[in-house]
Structures are given as C-alpha cells and as structure tokens.
C-alpha cells in the first residue's frame, strides 16, 4: 500500500473498543454562519485528553448520544492540545442533535482517524490551499500549522470561496490572514451585496490568477466535487506533478477505521487511506462518476 501522505499519523484513540465513543463536553459554541457552528470539545477523561494527538486533515467520529455518529474534521490547531474544535454544518439528524445539546452538552468522540495533509513533505514548497464552503474546516489546521512553521515553506496561498459573504466560516480569521501578509489569503464569493469589497465569482476564477512555479508547488484542496475537480485540473494543466496535488474527499462513513466498507472509493478506504489523497493515487478513477 502506498503511503504518500503523512506516514507517522497518530493511531486512533478509541477507548476500550474501536466502536466505543469517549465522552467529551462541549465547552463553547461559535456561530459561523446561518447553519454552521464551531463546537469546542474537551475530552472528559484527563489522561486521554492529555495523550490525544492528531494531525491536520484528520477527523473524529462525533457521537450524538443515542442518535448516531458523523465524521467531522478537527479544525483547530494540532499543537494546541486540550480543546478540539469541530466546525459543523447542521444538516441532518446527528448534526442537529449535537447542535441541540449546545454548550455544556456531552457528546461522544472516536478518533482521530484518517491520513491528513502531507505536512511532512511541505519543506521548501510553495503551498497553495484551496477551500470551498465548509471545506475550510479541514484546511484551517493546515493554515495554523503553516503559520507555526512559516520558515519551512516559500509562498503560502489560501484561496477560499463561498456563496455569499455571510456564508464564510472563520470570517474574522480570514480577514486577519488576508491583512497580515504572512500568507496570501484571498476570499471570493459567488454573490455579494454592495458592501463586499473582495472578488466576486467562483473560486475557480481565482485559481487562474495564481502564478505557479510548478517545480516547487504543492496544492491542497477541499471542497465540493466540482471545486476539487477544478483545482486538480487547473494545477495539473500548469504542470504541478500529480503526486503534489492533494485533495481531501468526502464519503459516507460509519466506522472510521477501514471495517464497514461504506467509504470505499475505487480500491481506497477514504477513512484510512484518505481522506487526503495525492491526485496520482486516484487519477485512474477521478473522472469516473460513482467510483
């Protein structure tokens, strides 16, 4: 099995049994947009909490007691232990139940699962991050990682697109990243009212504006299917090698540890082989529908 991403990913910590969620309390809830909130979650057990390690791009299975579980990316800084942030779009039974619990509520957690972004390969590269909508959630820990280790990469570009300015997640942070100049961050929206001063149009338009040194560029993208496609094809066309174009994919997930079969994508288990894949690993099936 090829191991193109982080090879030293932390093993999942799952308590007594891989299926058994650990209790965790919601310590704070931040409103991101009309249906998306960031839940700060603290594992109740002190020993477990202090030994819990993860890497950008990994996810947890969050459990709404008695209702069920959902795969949710960890969206906070992996070097800031103690509290784990999860930005959740409230769309269905589990996410609604977690939302209803709110601050002070107790949920369950299994993880961390999956292979995240290849931070171990970042050295000396230009990093281009592309995110759409809620897809910024798994990218955000990567931004934190890059900010902490800024000297290890050359240019760092973050392109983010969402429907309207009000749909942005982490709006304040985006503003700070845009103005700080530590990285080149750019936000575009599909539709905007008069007061929006940034670019308008799909994120794909921004892609074309990036000047790329294909020799040393690394792309990391997460968004809806069309965004992933556009990002991949744009940078492949600019001769960025397929082994340095990384996409985080979404699939139905039930177990998170390669047992239930739900997340299969061709021969891959997205939960363990991914969710982050180098394009070269999935090139054969990427253009096929329903793989």
């Amino acid at each position: 099995m090829t191991q193109l991403g982080s090879t030293d990913r932390p093993a999942p910590f799952c308590g007594l049994d891989t299926w058994l969620p650990l209790p965790a309390r919601i310590t704070r809830v931040d409103q991101e947009n009309f249906n998306t909130r960031t839940f700060h979650v603290q594992i109740v057990d002190d020993a477990v909490r202090s030994s819990y390690r993860w890497l950008p791009g990994q996810f947890n299975m969050l459990y709404a007691p008695g209702i069920g579980e959902a795969a949710i990316s960890i969206s906070s800084d992996c070097e800031q232990g103690g509290v784990l942030e999860h930005t959740i779009r409230v769309v269905g039974s589990v996410t609604r139940a977690i939302d209803r619990l709110g601050e002070g509520g107790v949920i369950g957690l299994r993880g961390p699962f999956g292979r995240g972004w290849p931070v171990d390969q970042i050295d000396g590269h230009d990093v281009v991050m592309v995110a759409g909508g809620i897809g910024l959630a798994p990218i955000r820990p990567l931004v934190y990682w890059v900010l902490r280790h800024r000297e290890r990469c050359h240019r760092v570009i973050l392109l983010y697109g969402c429907r309207t300015p009000d749909d942005q997640v982490y709006a304040d942070e985006l503003k700070a990243w845009e103005s700080d100049g530590v990285i080149d961050a750019l936000v575009t929206v599909d539709n905007a009212a008069q007061d929006w001063v940034g670019p308008v149009g799909v994120v794909t338009n921004l892609l074309r504006r990036v000047r790329v040194n294909a020799e040393r560029t690394m792309v990391m993208a997460c968004g809806p299917k069309m965004l992933n496609r556009a990002a991949a094809w744009n940078f492949l066309q600019l001769h960025v090698p397929a082994s340095r174009v990384f996409l985080s994919l979404e699939r139905n997930m039930n177990c998170g540890f390669g047992r239930c079969g739900h997340c299969q994508y061709g021969s891959k288990f997205v939960c363990t082989d991914g969710p982050v894949f180098a394009f070269s690993e999935i090139a054969d099936i990427f253009a096929s529908e329903e793989a």
């Binding site: 269905g92 299917k225 699939r251 139905n252 239930c260 079969g261 739900h262 529908e289 793989a291």
Partner: peptide, 27 residues
C-alpha cells in the same frame, strides 16, 4: 450486515455516491 447495493450505503448530504444501478453493480 450492509450491502453496497443500497442507497444508504453511500449516502452523503449531496445524495448517494452511487445513485445508479450501473454504479453499484460495477462497484
């Protein structure tokens, strides 16, 4: 036991990944 021939098997918020029988049989 679950089967890859069901809709819920691959369901995501944007619908099932394999919504056609062609896709499911092929898988």
């Amino acid at each position: 036991w679950e089967s890859c021939f069901t809709h819920q098997f691959s369901y995501t918020t944007t619908g099932p990944v394999r919504s056609t029988i062609r896709g499911r049989y092929r898988h």
